[in-house]
Amino acid sequence: MLCSYRAMVRLFFIILVTCAGWSATPPRASRQSGSRKETATPATREAGLAAWQQVYSVLTHPRCINCHTATNYPQQGDDRHRHLFNVVRGPEGKGVPGLNCATCHQGANADSTGVPGAHNWHLAPLSMKWQDLNDKILSSAEICRSLTDRSKNHNLDGLGLLKHHEEEPLVLWAFQPGHSRDGTARSLLPLTHDEFVAATRAWVEAGTPCPQNP
């Protein structure tokens, strides 16, 4: 009887330790992010949110947000002024015939003339706007919600977002933005690309947690 009781207690502890081990193990990025949100431990969520804030600091830099506008036109410069020359968004975010993004922006930075360039230069879709119509940058929570909403982000899961940040030519451009016509180097993002990818990976592995409102 006593032996049977001890065996049950031992079994209970084994199950308890196993469960604790599972819950303390960080979720892998190879799993779907949607189901991880509910299973992330508070510690994991906290680390994920810290990583997200690093990602947010990059996304809201002019090098990124100038093409994630809420308006019918792109923006330019660190003061995020309206793009010169009456450039408009156009139906595909690439301008309009006769005045496309590619009218000036080529596949690489034009060092001799100061025009920035990268493959397939275009605006982000309006569903990925990171500012409001008054030019105010959206909050960390708002951008995080948009970014993780697969109805808005071209159906990207966490891994898809990570790949976007790792490989998209326009993202890569933002880390090597070249210089202006007068030779002044464009201001750089607050993180290196490696740091940005690492932060994105940590956020994705934590289940892409988003801050609470606001």
Partner: peptide, 21 residues
């Protein structure tokens, strides 16, 4: 690239030739 006087077509795309190396 502000005035358009230098516009040519490159692969069919209207292009401001004054800023394209």
């Amino acid at each position: 690239a502000a005035c358009g006087a230098c516009t040519v077509h490159v692969a069919g795309v209207a292009t401001r030739s004054c800023v394209v190396p």
